[in-house]
């Protein structure tokens, strides 16, 4: 490692550590983690209860589902409980992730510490890199917390680990996409509220362009469908890992990183 690289690596590590400390040292972060974990657990338990009731009806004396083999294929833990829950969780991320990302840049700006940071030994690229990486790490922990209970149950019920892996990868990709949007929004304002609301608005729009189908023709509709987070996530939730979908989410992240980096120049000019 050259002296110059080493000279930059230390403050970069320090900034990364500081970002993690801020994220994990804030009660809001724990509240967010608790909220996601609790909501997922309760929703999962409720789905499970309803599924068991449906199964009870099919296996009751009148229908004798197990004996007669008349339980429809779609009445199973994967299709009735796990996949719907994961789709709900993907939407829930829109409500949660902007709460995590809103302060990352906006707080620095409102306190005036962004200029201090820009004059440090760190380049703007380093600052963007450290903040994005720390946020992505927090988002991964957030998902792990929400995933552990449904995954434990569903593995016990026979859903393969690879399929679970695909679903988790999809959720992570969606979360990274939303987090990137949230961070880009946070970089343009000093108000955490504006950062959060604009992130909500953009993430909501991006999640599913189905709402736009009444206004656009089938061709544009197809283009918009390719831009939808939901359409991309649904392949993962079916157990398919498509490189194009992974590249799409990475592309969203890259564009947001580029925009965020641009915002630092924008501030300088202003």
């Amino acid at each position: 490692m050259s002296a110059r690289t080493a000279g930059r690596a230390r403050p970069l590590r320090a900034l990364f550590r500081k970002e993690l400390q801020v994220l994990f040292g804030s009660p809001v972060a724990y509240m967010t983690l608790t909220f996601v974990g609790l909501v997922t657990a309760l929703l999962f338990f409720d789905h499970l209860r309803v599924y068991n009731q449906v199964l009870f009806v099919y296996t009751s004396n009148a229908m004798r589902g197990f004996e007669a083999g008349t339980i429809p294929d779609h009445v199973n833990l994967r299709d009735q409980v796990f996949v719907p829950l994961m789709e709900t969780l993907a939407i829930t991320l829109i409500g949660i992730v902007p709460l995590v990302t809103m302060r990352v840049f906006a707080e620095e700006r409102s306190r005036g510490t962004d200029e201090l940071l820009l004059t440090s030994r760190l380049s703007p690229n380093d600052i963007v890199f450290a903040k994005f990486t720390a946020t992505y790490l927090f988002v991964a922990v957030l998902l792990a917390v929400s995933f552990v209970y449904p995954a434990t149950s569903v593995v016990r019920a026979g859903l393969g680990l690879e399929h679970l892996g695909a679903v988790y990868l999809g959720l992570l990709a969606v979360a990274v996409g939303i987090a990137s949007i949230g961070l880009a929004c946070s970089a343009f304002t000093g108000s955490q509220l504006i950062a959060a609301i604009s992130a909500y608005a953009i993430a909501f729009v991006m999640y599913d362009f189905g709402w736009a189908s009444p206004f656009v023709g089938p061709d544009l509709g197809e283009v918009l469908a390719r831009l939808s987070f939901h359409a991309r996530f649904s392949t993962f939730s079916e157990g398919l890992v498509v490189p194009a979908d992974a590249i799409y989410f990475l592309g969203v992240a890259a564009v947001c990183i580029a925009i965020t980096r641009g915002s630092l120049d924008f501030v300088r000019v202003r």
Partner: peptide
């Protein structure tokens, strides 16, 4: 265009 996908279903 190149397609390709990994089937991770059970």
């Amino acid at each position: 265009r190149f397609g390709g996908r990994l089937d991770w279903t059970t």
